Simulated assay, not measured.
Amino acid sequence: MSLRLDHLVIGAASLAEGEAWCEATLGVRPSGGGKHLLMSTHNRLLNLSGPSFPRCYLEIIAIDPDAPPPGRARWFDLDSPALQQRLRVEGPGLIHWVARVDGDLEAQLIAWREQGAEAGEAVAASRMTAAGELRWRIALRADGQRLFGGALPLLIEWGEVHPADGLPNSGVSLQQLLLRLPQPGLLPGLAADAGEAWLEARLQTPLGLVSLPLMT
């Protein structure tokens, strides 16, 4: 079983701030996206696909102020007061990433658990798009906590449709994902160095090369 980088997650205090950040930082505006009824969040997307990272995209996500409380902790640590404060003060930033499971999501969760990494349980999720309902399964902890400060990814297993397939070419592409973990063996198929948890994404954009460090 191996993992592939699926998407980068940009947290924002509001979706409008996230969209403005994307245009100012990457030189383009995001497109698509929608509402997550399960988590009371909403998002916008940007295609990052290229030869090194096919079927890859950037997700800008924020708490949906018009949605009722979800009744559980939101994903990506979005309910963390410390993270909320940083997003309000410092603006949007890279808060997490998601890895796609090529195989059985439950089996990968068991393998992580045996190595001491408790990533939660597989949960079915969906959102509506212009082309219909998008479905996936994602590993969620009950407390919504990001493992290793966000350097260890959430795990996802897509249904028949992948969101990157419907996104237009954005002119932005992911060039490198620089990653360190105390347990790099948790990421079969992905290159990670051993050391203190750390993550940085480097993107080629209309504004030049942009580095996005992890906001912990």
Rank of each mutant, 00 (worst) to 15 (best):
D104M: 04
P168L: 05
D6Y: 08
L152R: 01
L154Y: 12
L199I: 10
I10M: 02
A16Q: 13
S170G: 11
I10N: 01
H162Q: 14
A16F: 05
L46R: 01
L203A: 08
N43S: 00
E23G: 01
E90G: 05
W198R: 13
L109D: 12
G33P: 13
A111V: 08
G27V: 08
G32C: 03
A131C: 04
L199A: 09
R72M: 05
P188A: 12
Q176D: 15
S80K: 03
A151T: 09
Y57S: 07
L167C: 09
A191Y: 02
G33A: 10
P182N: 14
D77H: 00
P188W: 15
S14I: 02
E90I: 00
E160D: 13
W97V: 07
E59F: 04
T41H: 09
P168K: 11
L38T: 07
H96Y: 15
P70R: 07
L46T: 01
L8E: 07
I95Q: 10
A117F: 03
H7I: 10
G91S: 11
W97S: 06
H36I: 03
E118P: 05
M1Y: 00
V123Q: 03
G71K: 01
G166V: 09
P206R: 01
K35G: 06
E200G: 06
F53A: 11
V9D: 08
L179I: 04
R202V: 15
L15N: 04
S2M: 13
L190P: 00
A16P: 03
G93Q: 07
G32V: 01
H162N: 13
L179Q: 05
